[in-house]
Every structure is written in C-alpha cells, then in structure tokens.
Amino acid sequence: MKPQSMGQAVLIGLALIYLASLYFMSSPVWMGFTINALIVAVVALAWNITGGFGGMASFGHAAMYGTGAYASAILQVQYGINAWIAFAAGIVAGAAMGAFIGALAFRYGLKGSYFALVTLAFAEVLRICASSFAITGGGSGLQLRLEPGLSTLQFNERAVVYTILLVIVALVMALTAWLKYSRFGAYLIAVRENEDAARALGIDTYRIKVKAMAISGAFAGLAGVLYLQVWLFIDSAVVYGSAVSIEALIGPIIGGAGTVWGPLIGTLGLHLLGEGAKHLLHNAPGLNFVLYAVVLICALRFLPQGLMGLAARIGTFRKKDDDNA
C-alpha cells in the first residue's frame, strides 16, 4: 500500500485530506454524496480484483452487487431474519454468484470482450428476473422497515454511517493489498500477463480465475448490502442496472487498475467531477454519464495506467540498491 513516488503520495494525501475534511465541514450534502461514492468505491475495488489484477474485464458487476443486496433484503423483509445474518448472507450470495458466472464463462474459455458480454448478459437477465418475481418485490422493489439501531444495522447519524463506510473501504483495501502480495495475487497477475506461461509454471488457471471471481463477487455483494443498509430501499433497476457495472469499472480504470489505491481515487475523482458538473449545469439528468464517457475515453487514450500510473512517474523515490551481486 506504500506510495512509490512523490506523485502518488500527493494523490493519496489529497484523497485522505478530502475524506477527513468532511468531519469538519458538517455539510450533510457533501457527506451524503461521499457516502454514495464510498459504496461505489467498494464495487470498484471488487472489479479491480478481476479486472485489474486478473485482466478479466467484467461488464456486469451489477450481477454480484444486486445479488448481495437482494439476498440481504429478501432475508430481512420476507423472512424477518436479523440484519447481521442477512449482511453476511449478502456477501456469501455475491461470492456464489461470482463463482457461478466465472465457472461457466471460464469453463468455455471465454476471454476479453466475450467474457465482458457474458457478464453483462447475466446482470441483465438477473435484472429482468428481479423485476418479475414476487419474492424480490417485482417492479416495486423491496423496502426495509425503518428501525435505527445496532441490531438492524441502520444508523440515523450521517457521520456514523460515513465512519463505518470508511472503515469498510479501508478493510477492503487492506485485503486487496494482502492479496496482491500473496501467492494468489502473484498467480492472478501471471494469468493476466500470459495464461499459457502460467499454466506451464504449474498454475491451475481455471481455479485461480474462479477464485478471483468469488472474491470479487464477495466484495461486490458487500457493496450491494451496504447500499441497502444505507438507503433501505432497492429495486431491480437500482441494483442490477448497468449503471452499477459501468461505475464499477470506470473508477479503477481512471484511478489505476491493479493498484490498491486506484479504485478509491478514481471513484472519488469521478464523483467529484460529476457532482461539480451537475451544479454548474443545473442538474441536467444523465449529464454525469456523458462526462464519465469523455473522461474514460481520455483516460484510455492518455493514461493507460490511470492516475496512479501518471503519479508514479512524478518524483520517483529512489530505491536503495541492496545486493548487486
């Protein structure tokens, strides 16, 4: 998680200063906005595991996000199960959905845009299913009963919600860093760079990829559950909609895919930009997506390694040359 250059240290510092400053600004608008951005950052971190480290660009992370949210909501609303258990179940459901999609797609050797299309198709099928069945509340969605408290995982205080989200984002990032420097992380990067060479070195690439999808699915499911607990309402368009999938991939790509900080920085930057544009142009609906598209195209053209990649080139810390034998 250590920054490798002055530029990266500045970028991370800016993000941290912004996040900390919200405690002193006492602006409910900004805090609400940032709470949203943090939930998106968790899906972005989920996408980063498969798309960033594993090179499997999914276009349908909404499938896992929505499954997590719906699993938790159905358990709480339809079966009256405790919010904590439902919370855990949402994460497990997200992981299971990720593993299922991965197992199917990789069994047939899907890669690149074919994999992206299949994930998109899964998310869309799930969206349509969720809007048609009674257990998911059909077209009207599911609403949690408002009962603030620790046992229901609902909090009135914005600052409390914000703090919990900050802790969760930090935990997910710490897990990402740990994965990156583990055997699994090295194998995942090897699979991204050259699958045949990875197989020759004794890596069961199919298992590694499915495992990555399961971990990514767990993070995405977690984000879905967080959305549910913060806003207490979900419907099929909100949690299975392609907007979720797009936001999941755009943050890491702009911030720097395959880095620990990239997804958070990219997501925060984009949301600030989108919010700023909305205020300037008087809330024209959908304008943030137009802006995202422009930023995405520019990032792909000029910043293939995202903001973290750009910052890495500014003021590189000198590495000590130990052991030149």
């Binding site: 055997r183 090295a186 090897a190 760079e193 070195l201 004794g202 890596i203």
Partner: peptide, 27 residues
C-alpha cells in the same frame, strides 16, 4: 516457450517467484 513473455508489471525476482510459489506458499 519459444516466444518468451515475462510477466510484465512484476520485477524479475517476482517473476521467478511465480515459479517458486508452486512448492513454497509463503511469499
């Protein structure tokens, strides 16, 4: 492989470690 392709984005040592991980699970 005839066409050698190191795992870009990893250092030389980390590249070799990908092989070593087969029987040594600890980083």
């Amino acid at each position: 492989f005839q066409i050698v392709q190191p795992f870009a984005g990893l250092t030389v040592q980390e590249n070799i470690a990908v092989g070593a991980y087969l029987h040594h699970h600890d980083r």
